[in-house]
Amino acid sequence: MLERKQLKNRTQVTFVLPADTPEGPVSVVGDFNHWNPAAHPLQPQGNGTRAAQVSLPTHSTHSFRYLAAGDYWFDDPTADHHDGTNNHIHT
């Protein structure tokens, strides 16, 4: 799930997943972090989810995917667009 919060010239995007689906560590990777899995690991939240926040320029489009343990790549069904390879978010 994607949550957005408009800031002055940025959009704070929170990437949210259930705590145990899939099991193990998960990172959000994309063009905003040079596809680096160490940059934005999802962290456990008090409400039973895990999340990572990224601040992106307003009025921009970014590609991303999730990467879980075992080199398991997966999509976010709430993304603004899917091109067959990546998810896209518009801020």
Rank of each mutant, 00 (worst) to 15 (best):
M1K: 15
M1S: 15
M1R: 15
E3Q: 13
E3Y: 08
R4D: 11
K5M: 06
Q6C: 02
Q6A: 05
L7I: 13
K8S: 15
R10N: 09
R10P: 08
R10K: 14
T11F: 06
Q12K: 14
V13I: 08
V13C: 01
T14K: 01
T14M: 02
F15L: 02
F15W: 00
L17K: 02
L17F: 04
D20T: 03
D20N: 03
D20R: 06
T21M: 11
T21D: 11
P22Q: 09
P22W: 12
E23A: 14
E23M: 12
E23R: 12
G24D: 13
G24E: 15
G24C: 12
P25W: 13
P25E: 15
S27D: 05
S27N: 06
V28N: 02
V28P: 03
V29R: 02
V29A: 07
G30F: 02
G30R: 00
F32I: 02
F32T: 02
N33R: 09
N33A: 13
N36M: 14
N36K: 14
N36R: 14
P37M: 09
P37T: 07
P37I: 05
P37V: 08
A38N: 12
A38T: 09
A38Q: 14
A39Y: 02
A39F: 01
Q43R: 09
Q43E: 11
Q43S: 05
P44C: 07
N47W: 11
G48N: 04
T49W: 12
A51V: 07
Q53N: 11
Q53H: 06
V54L: 03
S55R: 07
S55Y: 06
L56R: 00
L56P: 05
P57T: 04
P57N: 10
T58Y: 03
T58E: 04
T58G: 07
S60V: 00
S60R: 01
S60P: 06
T61V: 03
T61R: 00
H62Q: 03
H62M: 00
H62T: 01
F64T: 10
R65H: 07
L67T: 05
A69Y: 15
A69V: 15
G70P: 00
W73G: 01
W73H: 08
F74R: 04
D76S: 10
T78P: 04
T78M: 09
T78V: 11
A79C: 14
A79E: 05
H82F: 01
H82N: 01
H82M: 00
D83H: 10
D83E: 06
G84H: 11
T85S: 09
T85Y: 03
N86W: 05
N87S: 10
I89F: 04
H90A: 13
T91F: 07
T91A: 06
T91G: 12
